[in-house]
Amino acid sequence: MIRLALAFTLFLLAAPAFAISDPNEALPDPKQEARAVAIGEQLRCLVCQNESIEDSGADLARDLRHIVRQQVAAGKTDQQVIDWLVARYGNFVRLRPPFEASTLLLWGSPVLALAGGAAIVLLARRRQGESPPPLSDAERKRLRRLLDT
């Protein structure tokens, strides 16, 4: 939420919280901790603007970080952890929305944009390639007159 200041939104009056937290929070196994961070970065802090739970200092984000680590340590897969949170907070909690009917346009946007660009280029080139229309009889007459004189 503090990031809004970047462009002077300045409607930010809530005290900023920083994601500096308990050093004991991290899992002892660095591999598991890295996995927990990777999962946490895909989960939205529900009470913040647009931060992941890994970035946020909010209380709820801290609790969710803790739960993610508990589940990682218990051997759950990434998908299981994310599903557990989605069951409670819905797809809103995923910073990386799932690929489904309602997000088709979202995930399809790179392809659609490229296809649109290609289509415009092709249309423009086809137009460029078109030869000018043949002269009408009147024009031909005028041309002959011009050439004759």
């Binding site: 009470v47 709820l60 609790d63 409670r88």
Partner: peptide, 12 residues
């Protein structure tokens, strides 16, 4: 602990 709250999907 606020743990049950998460099961409820509480945000605040």
């Amino acid at each position: 602990p606020g743990r049950v709250a998460i099961d409820w999907g509480l945000t605040g």
